[in-house]
């Protein structure tokens, strides 16, 4: 197709690895994503914040091909990937780390990790990457011959991140890595996410309810409400925003009170 819709957002100076334009995704008759656009620059960490049911996970599923958007486009490294099967998208270089620690429970930790490299053909490099993953998560090496179902929640979260890493992805989609973990583990996981970004150069799109951790780890943030982006900015600036402080960080200031805000239609009260 020669003609394409004009981009509604200004194209960022650095060509984004991932650019999502005006996607609309439905669960049956219910529109879960109402025209979302976002960009992920190469080497960056971008976060999408939002409450339960805002549509964060649906955005990731639309990108990775589990759900197909009815409208809009998803471009990865310049090529349109919307409507493809999730395994095709994965082989293309996007690793989706789903929420809820989806391990292969009866495979060993090592087999789980090797499955992450299923689509790769460079056997030698895979062995090296296994060592690299063990370096980031030493506990996985200790447990390498155990069935993944017997790991604790935090270890399973490490395993799914490590498994995604084994694919050598050029973009990693991280869905709620903090879900159900203790504050100490959350800190550890986010520390490793940051390190993976800096040391391995993995571009990340991070979806979180834990706004504090996400804004500290990421460079750029989008705020999602009822399937729409209501705000987006550098994370440092979002951290200073009064609305973010009140509704996502739990810091309430008198000054914000009574003001007419973008957040009139709250999903929870």
């Amino acid at each position: 197709m020669a003609e394409s819709l004009p981009d509604t957002l200004p194209v960022s100076p650095a060509d984004p690895v991932l650019s999502v334009r005006n996607i609309e995704t439905y669960y049956g008759p219910i529109m879960a994503i109402r025209g979302v656009s976002l960009d992920v620059p190469k080497g960056g960490i971008v976060t999408v914040l939002g409450a339960n049911g805002a549509g964060k996970t649906t955005i990731l599923k639309t990108i990775s091909g589990v759900m197909d958007p009815q409208k809009g486009s998803v471009r990865f490294e310049g090529a349109e990937i919307q409507g493809r099967d999730p395994d095709w998208v994965a082989r293309r270089g996007i690793a989706h780390v789903p929420e809820g620690r989806e391990v292969f429970p009866f495979l060993t930790v090592r087999e789980n990790l090797l499955m992450g490299a299923f689509a790769r053909s460079d056997r030698g490099a895979v062995a090296g990457d296994l060592e690299m993953v063990y370096g980031y998560f030493p506990i996985l090496q200790e447990r390498s011959e155990q069935q993944a179902g017997y790991l604790s929640g935090g270890q399973q979260q490490m395993l799914v991140i490590g498994r995604a890493l084994m694919a050598r992805p050029r973009l990693m989609l991280l869905d709620e890595p903090s879900l159900g973990l203790s504050p100490i583990l959350v800190k550890e996981i986010f520390g490793i996410v940051r390190r993976l970004n800096e040391e391995q150069g993995v571009t990340m799109l991070l979806v979180e309810q834990n706004a504090n951790m996400a804004l500290q780890a990421a460079d750029y943030g989008y705020v999602l409400e009822l399937g729409r982006i209501v705000m987006d900015d550098e994370c440092s600036r979002l951290l200073e925003s009064d609305d973010i402080k009140e509704f996502y960080l739990g810091v309430k200031k008198d000054a914000v009170r009574g003001k007419k805000r973008w957040r009139r239609k709250k999903t929870w009260r």
Partner: peptide, 22 residues
């Protein structure tokens, strides 16, 4: 490898998709 991928697909189909397993 394909045998282990078969086990993986039967244990967690969605995660198998995410690994690029057809």
């Amino acid at each position: 490898r394909i045998g282990v991928a078969m086990q993986a697909s039967s244990q967690n189909q969605l995660a198998a998709y995410y690994m690029g397993i057809p």
